[in-house]
């Protein structure tokens, strides 16, 4: 079955401004925490937290809530659809986390002579390509 990736601009109406504020605060907090942990316990420990699923609980909960509200607007009140959407979102995150392994490996192994933007760009491309490839393989089989 062919699955197309598209942009759904109606999502603007479903997401409230404070939901982005929550993500901003969580994201900022975990970035500061990762930096502080690296300073106090060394980079080998702090580095673990660069892949800490800090905002995933908030994201999955919002996915569940938005899908449930969508069904309720359609007059369907008893449904597991919200939970199923959150489970699918988590399955996607699992594939994204496999891409994270490639992201981290790229930064670890690229020569120190490379400039920072080039290193981060290569690593991000590695994350995106790996995640997308895994997603396509799963969809096609």
């Amino acid at each position: 079955m062919q699955v197309r990736v598209s942009l759904d601009f109606s999502a603007f109406g479903r997401t409230r401004w404070y939901e982005y504020v929550v993500r901003f605060l969580f994201g900022g907090a975990i970035t500061v925490m990762a930096g502080l942990l690296a300073k106090h316990f060394g980079p080998a420990f702090g580095g673990l937290f660069l892949a800490f699923p800090a905002i995933f609980p908030a994201s999955a909960t919002l996915v569940e809530k938005h899908e449930r509200e969508k069904k309720q607007r359609a007059g369907i009140f008893h449904t597991d659809r919200g939970l199923q959407a959150a489970a699918v979102d988590a399955a996607g995150a699992a594939m994204g986390s496999a891409g994270l392994v490639i992201f981290a490996f790229t930064i670890w192994k690229l020569p120190p002579t490379w400039h920072a933007p080039a290193v981060l760009l290569c690593a991000t491309a590695g994350w995106l390509l790996t995640s997308f490839a895994l997603w396509r393989i799963r969809k096609d089989h």
Binding site: I30, F56, S59, A91, G92, A93, A94, G96, W135
Partner: peptide, 14 residues
């Protein structure tokens, strides 16, 4: 949503 889920593990903090 399964594709959007990939971004739940985006290297944003990293």
């Amino acid at each position: 949503k399964s594709f959007a889920g990939l971004f739940g593990a985006a290297p944003s903090v990293a």
